[in-house]
Design a protein around this nucleic acid. Structure first.
Length: 901
RNA sequence: GGGUGGUUAGCUCAGCUGGUUAGAGCGCCUCGUUUACACCGAGGAGGCCACAGGUUCGAAUCCUGUACCACCCACCA
């Protein structure tokens, strides 16, 4: 016999092991079944499971289990990510803590990369174990890592192809430079933080210019005004003047450009093209000189004269002071709020710099797609616009389009060492005899010598690629056959052609991830994969929201008290409860709040299911039958509750199947929750306590419930299942039930609902009248009126009961299972008359009078009669008649026929 | 500055294409435990559905506007 309470700790690991060892997680590329594929968004290989992962794993596991049980070939590819900057930082910090001062210098590139790889290898077991804790039924035999050799091959192949197609170029651009991490970061990796900084206005020749960054002003020799600004109409574009500046006199030039906002400050500004993106654009437009002021180490360069070598923080006040002494300070606004760029990863202040970087051109129209030639941008727009990819929830489609409209070229090079290295070499041979030798050599494999001068003296580009470059290939690079990818003679097309997994499992079915990486990742997968393979990476994108604290705050590592550790929750409440708590009640794409009571609530549900199962098993034992051998088939002889249960089950199967098909996980979970608790436990099982039960149907119902619930809470359902079926049959493999329509049972189902209403009503009357629970009561439904009643709403029944016109027919006892036993609670002998409170009757009468009045007014309204649909009018007429009848009964029976008092 | 979403019970949220008297879970109050489950059962209280207009026979639901909250994008020297 089962224990009194379900203990997840005693079952989860054992069951996971059983699944994994049985091989059910493994997909078969050779099967003829319809496929269903999910690529797991790879967690950081060195990371720990957090709630974001947990919700992702829970959702994807539901998709996959549902698909598998429906007889599809379900593949869920797990994997981990090398998380370039994050991992490199962690290791550098670690090595420093061990006493090394400058790991980059001391270890060198190879040494450091080796150390990082070592660290990753050592710590990646953690996340693997944690993914298992969630019950994730992913195919571990296909586990991938973003730094696997075959993935690197894909990266290099795609890079080369994009370069050859003219989609990758190298150029000088303003980039976000993180002086702390010594690397570029992408637009999306920058956070903007508000900061109060003195906003100083200086005399610059005849102009007043304002700045929050005096330290960039050394090289400023252009003053820019709006062309239509009346205040400066006396100055011509290109006009020069001499003026005194920080380190002596300079010659400045007036530039007119519409980028200047005349309403801001003095309406004129000087520009620093090397350290400001907007200034860079202006300088490009007018062909102005650009000069570097701040070094890549964040310190001022020699152009700053006496300030050279100082940090920005040190120099800023001194520069203001110097200008003040020179009489050039006009005024200072100390409370100016501006926003400064901060690197998301390392937290260093971003210094815009001009750097030579690799870019992907998103505007160049060279991509063949659907018989047309378009730009990457247009292609990305097209696949979503034309429904090749559907985004759930829909509104994120709009967000996606908006993002594409504003998309600029993507800087893909990073100045770090951990990651896929840019597959580019430069000839540095002594005998550079061909001008082509100055061109970069793009190659999938290290070239043995320069193709032009044959020099073997080649150097690889030191940069690595943005993590998202390799992640963007994830849906298909993971399906490339590792052995085939070793063959250096094959092209990318040939590799794909010879990879059975790719042929069978791409494109994937659904990509499930948080909306916060819609741009980082989802959009880039669409870009890179559609370009590289000619296939969209996935057909559906399902975006989940962020999980927040009870107060709606983001959970953050800097406030550990706000964090909920999924592993703690699993230890305390079980993985099933955690999964339910993150999915039921959360609309896709909407943030949700999670707190412990919520998880505890679902733990209670899991336990309720456990105990209901226990009850069923006890009934079987009482009957002396073995549930494992019960194979129930429906017969024509069902009494009302059994027929109702069967009918409800069919409807449940329909709803759940449809709901999961349409990715409505929350709603469907709620439906199951309410069915199990409110219907199955509270009514069907309760009422069957004093009755003769049909163990066959009980077990059948329980099995059905377990199957439907399995995708949501796989552990407890599998555990219970093991007591209901022979050992080699695991629930995870069980076939999803088909819903048979049972229209002939609908009336039984409705009758059962009426019984529920009647019992509820009697309980209430009993409680209102203070009648002891043990005292018997009876209500009758005359068989003639029966049908009428069934179509009425329960509240009407309550009213009718109060006027004494309600009677319950205990007769539908035609079948051996004895409905009368079910109805024993109703077989009670107190006439209703004695229970009715005259005051309540008067109240009811008043209500009816008012209600009838309102209905009559409605009918009398001409506009209503003309416009409302005929059926509605009919309905109201019928209702009016029945309410009038009720009223007359009340007055006749209870209020002595007086029409008002 | 541009965009997106939200505002329903003390808390967390459902409420699809307008249609009887707006729902659930948690919390709260009352009663109940030899009988699957106190990780339980029965019952109850609690809501001018943010505000103001409009459309309609009828609006939480559709339209317009306002306020507040959240998020995303751009970024002004």
């Amino acid at each position: 016999m089962l224990q009194k309470a379900y203990d997840p700790k005693a079952t989860e690991d054992r069951i996971y092991k059983m699944w994994e060892e049985s091989g059910v997680f493994r997909a078969d590329a050779k099967s003829m079944k319809e496929v269903f594929i999910v690529s797991m968004p790879p967690p950081n290989a060195t990371g720990n499971l957090h709630l974001g992962h947990a919700v992702m794993l829970a959702l994807e596991d539901i998709f996959i289990r549902f698909a598998r049980m429906r007889g599809k070939e379900a593949l869920w590819v797990p994997g981990t990510d090398h998380a370039a900057i994050a991992t490199e930082n962690v290791v550098i910090r670690m090595v420093k803590e061990q006493g090394m001062k400058d790991p980059r210098k001391e270890l060198g590139r190879e040494g450091l990369v080796e150390k990082i790889a070592e660290y990753v290898e050592k710590s990646r077991g953690t996340i693997r174990a944690q993914i298992r804790k969630m019950g994730s039924s992913c195919d571990w035999s296909r586990e991938r890592y973003t730094m696997d050799p075959q993935l690197n091959r894909c990266v290099n192949e795609v890079f080369k192809r994009m370069y050859d197609d003219g989609l990758i170029y190298r150029g000088h651009r303003i980039v976000h430079w993180d002086p702390k991490l010594q690397t570029t970061v992408s637009d999306d990796e920058v956070d903007w933080k508000e900061e109060v900084a003195p906003f100083t206005t200086f005399q610059y020749g005849p102009f007043h210019i304002s700045t929050a960054r005096p330290e960039t002003k050394f090289g400023d020799k252009y003053v820019v005004v709006h062309p239509d600004d009346e205040r400066y109409k006396d100055y011509a574009h290109g006009q020069t003047f001499d003026c005194e500046w920080i380190n002596g006199p300079i010659r400045a030039t007036v530039i007119k450009d519409k980028a200047v906002d005349p309403a801001f400050g003095t309406g004129c500004m000087t520009i620093t093209p090397w350290h400001d993106a907007a200034d860079f654009d202006i300088a490009e437009r007018h062909g102005l000189e650009k000069e570097q002021i701040i070094g890549f180490d964040g310190k001022l360069l020699p152009i700053a004269g006496e300030f050279a070598g100082q940090t920005i923080a040190d120099a800023r006040p001194k520069i203001v002071e110097k200008l003040q002494k020179k009489g050039l300070l006009v005024k200072t606004d100390p409370s100016y709020v501006h926003r400064k760029a901060v690197s998301q990863r390392g937290g260093g202040t971003i210094e815009p710099q001009i750097k030579l970087q690799w870019f992907i051109d998103v505007n160049r129209s060279v991509v063949p797609w659907k018989g047309k030639t378009m730009s990457l941008k247009e292609m990305m727009h097209d696949v979503v616009h034309h429904g090749d990819i559907r985004i759930i929830p829909d509104r994120f489609g709009k967000v996606y389009f908006h993002w594409i409209d504003n998309l600029r070229d993507w800087c893909i090079s990073r100045q770090i060492w951990w990651g896929h290295r840019v597959p580019v070499w430069y000839c540095v041979g002594d005998t550079v005899c061909f001008p082509q030798c100055k061109e970069p050599i793009i190659s999938v494999f290290p070239p043995p010598y320069c193709p032009h001068c044959k020099s073997r003296n080649l150097e690889q580009d030191p940069d690595t690629l943005d993590t998202w470059f390799s992640s963007a290939l994830w849906t298909w690079s993971t399906l490339v056959d590792p052995t085939v990818a070793q063959d250096t003679s094959l092209s990318l097309e040939q590799i794909l052609e010879r990879s059975p997994d790719y042929k069978r499992f791409h494109p994937t079915t659904v990509m499930e991830t948080g909306y916060d990486i819609l741009f980082f990742w989802v959009a880039r997968m669409i870009l890179m994969t559609t370009y590289a393979t000619g296939q969209v990476p996935f057909k559906t994108v399902y975006l989940h929201g962020l999980i927040r604290t009870r107060d709606g705050q983001k959970m953050s590592k800097s406030h550990p008290e706000t964090m909920i550790d999924p592993l703690d929750m699993i230890a305390k409440y079980g993985a099933d409860a955690l999964r339910l708590s993150m999915i039921v009640g959360q609309a896709p794409g909407a943030d949700s709040k999670l707190y412990e009571e919520k998880i505890a609530g679902y733990r209670n549900f899991v336990n309720k299911l456990w105990n209901a199962s226990r009850f069923v098993l006890m009934k079987c034992e009482e009957k002396g039958v073995d549930p494992r051998e019960l194979d129930w088939v429906m017969t024509d002889y069902l009494d009302i509750p059994d027929a109702a249960l069967y009918c409800e089950l069919q409807e449940l199967i329909q709803d759940v199947t449809k709901g999961l098909d349409e990715y409505r996980l929350s709603e469907t979970g709620e439906r199951l929750y309410s069915f199990v608790w409110d219907f199955f436990c509270d009514w069907y099982l309760e009422l069957s306590k004093g009755a003769v039960v049909n163990p066959g149907l009980l077990v059948h119902a329980l099995r059905t419930i377990l199957i439907l619930l399995h995708p949501y809470c796989p552990f407890v359902t599998e555990e219970i299942w093991s007591h209901l079926s022979s050992e080699d049959q695991m629930l995870i493999n069980e076939e999803w039930p088909r819903a048979y329509g049972a229209p002939h049972l609908k009336s039984a189902r409705n009758q059962f609902r009426v019984l529920i209403d009647v019992i509820t009503m009697l309980r209430k009357i009993r409680s209102d009248q203070g009648i002891e629970a043990s005292r018997p009561m009876t209500a009758f439904i005359h068989s003639k009126r029966h049908r009428v009643l069934l179509e009425e709403h329960s509240d009407h029944i309550r009213r009718m009961a109060q006027v004494g016109s309600l009677t319950i027919d205990v007769k539908p006892v035609k079948h051996p299972n004895s409905a009368s036993a079910f109805l024993s609670e109703l077989e009670i002998q107190v006439p209703l008359e004695g229970l009715v409170d005259p005051a309540a009757m008067r109240k009811e009468r008043d209500f009816l009078v008012e209600y009838i009045g309102s209905l009559e007014a409605k009918i009398a309204n001409e506009a209503f009669r003309v416009k409302a649909p005929a059926c509605v009018v009919e309905e109201i007429r019928a209702k009016l008649a029945s309410e009038k009848e009720k009223l007359s009964k009340i007055e006749e029976h209870w209020l002595g026929g007086t029409a008002g008092d």
